[in-house]
């Protein structure tokens, strides 16, 4: 049984997996905070969120390429829902879009959402195609449940 199948099975996550996502989430959130601080404020913060979400989505799509992630449910959870789930964020995306719309900056809001959605979709599609093309181990590459 692969790590992914094992992780799909339980309805309630084990304590070990909860710790994995807490530890990974802390690292991801700290990294996101660091990017935000580096961006400063204003519109740079908005584009920092685009970079975080598009970059994090690409990395999540790339995780199945790691043998460690395919072998271990703990590491798959720590790095996927943990680090990358904590690094990327939907709430900041929604709140920043709401604020731009409320300020009547509709063109910026449209560009922001378009860059996020199309950038994320394109990044995942490209990485997914690259990961699938890699030679597989016995049993083949399996997708990591995000």
């Amino acid at each position: 049984m692969s790590a992914v199948e094992r992780r799909d099975a339980p309805t309630r996550p084990t304590a070990a997996l909860s710790i994995a996502v807490a530890a990974g989430g802390a690292i991801g959130a700290l990294a996101r905070w660091g990017v935000d601080v580096a961006a400063g404020g204003g519109d740079a913060l908005v584009w920092a969120t685009v970079a975080i979400n598009v970059g994090g989505s690409a990395l999540l799509a790339a995780l199945p390429a790691l043998a460690l992630v395919r072998r271990s449910a703990w590491w798959a959870t720590a790095l996927g829902p943990g680090v990358l789930g904590g690094f990327t964020t939907m709430s900041a995306c929604a709140e920043q879009a709401r604020a731009l719309i409320a300020e009547d900056r509709l063109a910026v809001a449209g560009g922001y959402l378009g860059a996020t959605v199309l950038g994320g979709a394109l990044a995942v599609a490209i990485v997914h195609a690259m990961v699938r093309r890699r030679p597989t181990e016995p049993g083949g590459l399996r997708e990591v449940r995000p």
Partner: peptide
């Protein structure tokens, strides 16, 4: 900390794909 980590974009993007 909380809202940023409770929500996720990466899972959304991979699931959409």
């Amino acid at each position: 900390g909380f809202c940023g980590t409770f929500t996720t974009y990466s899972a959304f993007a991979v699931q959409t794909h």
